[in-house]
Amino acid sequence: MLIEILGTGCPKCELLAKHAEEAARSLGLEYRIMKVKEIPDIMARGVMSTPALAVDGVLKLQGHVPTVRSLAELLKA
């Protein structure tokens, strides 16, 4: 599973990455985290409010940092 964190690297993006990692680990998933930091790359994905998260290339959320619990539900689906 490829988890992408879209964001320019502000504290909220780091927090989202941390939460996503915790959630993936709690589910025992095999995952890889990639950070997309350049604005043109972020916007090419249709995102304008960061941080955002995509799973296997599909955009799942944008503009906020959910709790580990609801991220786990999102990754499970």
């Binding site: 964001g7 320019t8 502000c10 909220k12 993006c13 604005i39 916007m43 409010s49 960061t50 503009g63």
Partner: peptide
């Protein structure tokens, strides 16, 4: 409208 101040630039472009 809630947004992280660090996304001001993408937000501006998006608008």
């Amino acid at each position: 409208t809630p947004f992280c101040s660090c996304s001001a630039v993408p937000l501006f472009i998006g608008f």
